[in-house]
Design a binder for these strands. Structure first.
Lengths: 192, 192
DNA sequence: ATAGTTTTAGAACATTTATTTTAAAAAAAC
DNA sequence: GTTTTTTTAAAATAAATGTTCTAAAACTAT
């Protein structure tokens, strides 16, 4: 009952995410978001509470709709083959994308610019993806696909760092062509 | 003639750099800088023109006094040994540092938050350090210290990415211990 | 000393920002 | 059709921000 809302929450979050991704938290104003989403200020605040609430929703959306799907293949194939497919996808996809960096990683160096809660979200995200990779690597080790002497935790850190950091460096536009080659380097690091 | 200034430009830039480094450009207010440096607003604007001018001076200072010295050893030893010493220093030093990331890299994902001129400065910096590394690697190749099939440009990209990006990831505090091990991985990548 | 020059402290200004309020608009319930 | 409920549009507010101005302070040269 009551007047029906004229917006879709998901569409709004999707667009807001784009603005935060492009500008960073602090450099994004509510006006920017309002302009981009078409949603008015009052509804914005009613729906998300405040700017931080909106950012938090954007982070969740990023996890669930941008990064999450890319890790799907690793969840379905928690082994060396999964790692391989995952990395191949990531580095081929990244080469075509806009190189805005990883929304989460971009805010890793700005932990005290965002709220403690958002920092927590970012930290949890890093831990989560790293443990996904490590689980796959541990299985690979158990199956004898990688050496028993390999430090899977360290390798997982390395992989996540490369995956979520390379794209950032890729923003330096003329270096785009280098990105896909990271795939070979990383796999060699895991295998040999 | 005239009243003598009560501040040292270099000391001011040094402190301003620290604030920008910690917060990022947009999240740093002139008030923050004034509070931190003790310098008053008028002198700030007389000396640097505006906020962008101050940030530009901070970037220069970072290049000349923070990163520059670390590359000294590579300039003096433009060969494999130089690369080795450089990386050892960087990764051992980074393990002890504060993990604020690389001031320049932190702004790579925020190119249009800062001014085009500052973006230019950041880009030039990346190109500069990369060509330093590549020069050393090319010499190493000429001297037969690394294989003739190695793509020195690509390796240089990889090294710079790791050097200036790892520290960023290192901010994820509990992973600090992983950082020093990157040294081995990178050297293996170069050598084998 | 006085005049001239530059820096300083801090008030002043204009704009932007995050957020709240007010009143009209659009639907459902009775 | 009136009441009730929720959303909306836009004005209003309050604080923060980038920048400029004013007048006093601190020095040099004459």
């Amino acid at each position: 009952m009551g007047r029906p809302r004229s917006y879709s929450r998901e569409a709004v979050v999707e667009k807001a995410m784009g603005v935060f991704w492009q500008n960073g938290y602090k450099a994004t104003s509510i006006s920017d978001v309002v302009r981009e989403t078409g949603l008015n200020t009052a509804s914005m605040y009613k729906e998300f509470g405040d700017k931080e609430g909106l950012f938090s929703a954007a982070l969740d959306h990023y996890r669930d709709h941008v990064i999450g799907p890319r890790y799907r293949i690793l969840i379905d194939n928690p082994n060396l083959e999964g790692v391989e497919m995952f990395l191949r996808n990531v580095f081929l996809g990244a080469a075509k994308s806009e190189y805005k960096g990883c929304l989460m990683m971009n805010h890793l160096a700005q932990k005290h610019v965002i709220s403690p809660e958002a920092a927590e979200q970012v930290g949890a995200f890093c831990a989560e993806v790293e443990s996904l990779v490590e689980a796959a690597l541990r299985n690979a080790q158990a199956e004898g696909d990688i050496g028993p002497d390999k430090d899977t935790a360290q390798l997982a850190s390395f992989v996540v760092f490369c995956v979520h950091g390379t794209v950032l460096y890729g923003r330096h536009d003329e270096k785009k062509h280098v990105i896909p080659n990271f795939y070979d380097m990383i796999m060699r690091e895991i295998r040999e």
